[in-house]
Computed example of a mutant assay.
Amino acid sequence: MLVKWIRCTVTDPRGFEQGQRRWAGLLGEPGFRGQGGGWSRGRPSVAHVFAFWESRSFYDSFMARAHDRLAAAQAGTFKDMQAKLFEHRFDVRTGFEPRFGDADVVRVAHSRVHSERAEHFALMQEKIWNPAMAGSPGMLRAMFGEAPGDEFLVLSMWQSAAERGKYRPERIERLSLRAQTDADVVALAGDVVQLEPSWTV
């Protein structure tokens, strides 16, 4: 499965939201698995969108055909758009599905890793971080994805921001020491996204 993560700064919120509803046109596209998104809780003008495709070939076919027509509705409503593609590598809990209806927030963590430490980073995600996240109350499901250039994405869906808040900083620090995260990671960025139900396709 392929994940596309789009992040942008919105300059015309009303126009952007109207345009976002036009993405319902994705339904019926071959290989499309689901899309959702919302607003950053820390930076309210920043929007995140997550789109899921069965494979790169289905995604490339869509980009060559229908993408520009759907995207036209949002032209001029945002700036500083960044889009990245990640290949699904493994689930944090079993059976990750790109469903957004039961989730309130999405936590996104994006890491750039030293190339010689990339396999260690992925192994620590599997052995240390996954069990900790899977045991967190309110964490519905999550996935770990990889992009060329030793970049990784952890996308987790939570029942509520309050549940996400129980994932305590001191606990994260302890896990980080065990996983030797500082030795692996060049740069780490993250956000908590308040999902907008009307953006879900």
Rank of each mutant, 00 (worst) to 15 (best):
Thr77Val: 06
Asp60Cys: 07
Thr11Ser: 13
Gln194Cys: 07
Ala75Trp: 10
Leu123Met: 13
Pro13Ala: 09
Phe78Ile: 03
Leu70Tyr: 05
Ala161Arg: 05
Gln20Val: 04
Ser198Ala: 14
Thr200Trp: 06
Trp5Ser: 08
Gly37Thr: 04
Thr200Asn: 10
Arg112Asn: 06
Arg33Thr: 09
Glu119Ser: 11
Arg174His: 15
Arg43Thr: 13
Glu116Ile: 10
Gly31Ala: 11
Trp158Arg: 01
Pro98Phe: 02
Arg7Pro: 01
Glu54Pro: 04
Gly38Asp: 02
Gln20Lys: 08
Ser156Lys: 01
Glu119Thr: 08
Glu170Leu: 15
Trp129Tyr: 12
Lys79Cys: 14
Gly15Cys: 08
Asp150Trp: 13
Ala75Ile: 13
Gln180Phe: 07
Leu175Gln: 02
His88Gln: 14
Ser176Gln: 06
Glu126His: 12
Gln180Gly: 12
Glu54Leu: 13
Ala187Pro: 02
Leu70Glu: 03
Ala24Met: 07
Lys166Leu: 15
Phe16Ala: 05
Ala66Asn: 10
Gly15Asp: 03
Ala187His: 08
Tyr59Cys: 02
Gln20Ala: 11
Phe62Trp: 15
Arg43Leu: 15
Val193Lys: 00
Gly135Met: 09
Gly19Leu: 03
Ala122Leu: 14
Gln18Trp: 08
Ala142Val: 03
Arg7Tyr: 06
Val185Phe: 03
Ser61Gly: 07
Pro148Lys: 10
Gln194Pro: 00
Cys8Glu: 08
Phe86Glu: 00
Gln125Pro: 02
Val105Arg: 00
Ala47Arg: 01
Phe152Arg: 00
Arg21Asn: 09
Ala183Lys: 09
Ser57Trp: 12
Arg43Glu: 15
Pro131His: 05
Val201Leu: 10
Ala24Leu: 10
Asp91Thr: 04
Leu123Cys: 14
Arg141Leu: 08
Ile6Asn: 10
Arg43Val: 15
Gly145Cys: 05
Ala72Asp: 11
Thr77Glu: 02
Gly38His: 00
Arg22Cys: 09
Asp80Ile: 11
Leu140Val: 06
Glu116Thr: 13
Lys84Arg: 15
Pro197Ile: 09
Lys166His: 13
Glu17Met: 09
Glu196Val: 12
Ile6Pro: 03
Phe86Gln: 00
Ser40His: 04
Leu188Cys: 06
Thr94Asp: 15
Arg178Ala: 14
Val201Ser: 04
Gly190Glu: 10
Arg168Asp: 12
Pro13Ile: 05
Pro169Gly: 05
Gly138Glu: 09
Gln180Leu: 13
Gly34Met: 06
His67Lys: 07
Arg22Leu: 08
Lys127Cys: 10
Val92Thr: 04
Ile128His: 01
Ala142Thr: 06
Phe100Arg: 01
Phe86Asn: 00
Ala161Ile: 09
Ala109Met: 14
Gln82Arg: 15
Gly76Cys: 05
Gly34Cys: 10
Ala142Arg: 01
Phe86Thr: 02
Asn130Ser: 14
Gly25Asn: 07
Pro44Thr: 11
Phe96Ile: 03
Val105Ser: 02
Ala75Asp: 10
Tyr167Trp: 15
Phe16Pro: 04
Asp91Ser: 13
Val92Glu: 01
Gly76Trp: 08
Met1Leu: 10
Thr94Gln: 14
Ile172Tyr: 06
Ser55His: 08
Arg112Cys: 07
Met1Arg: 03
Val106Tyr: 01
Met143Phe: 07
Gly149His: 11
Ile128Thr: 09
Ala132Gly: 04
Glu170Pro: 04
Asp68Gly: 10
Leu26Arg: 00
Arg56Phe: 09
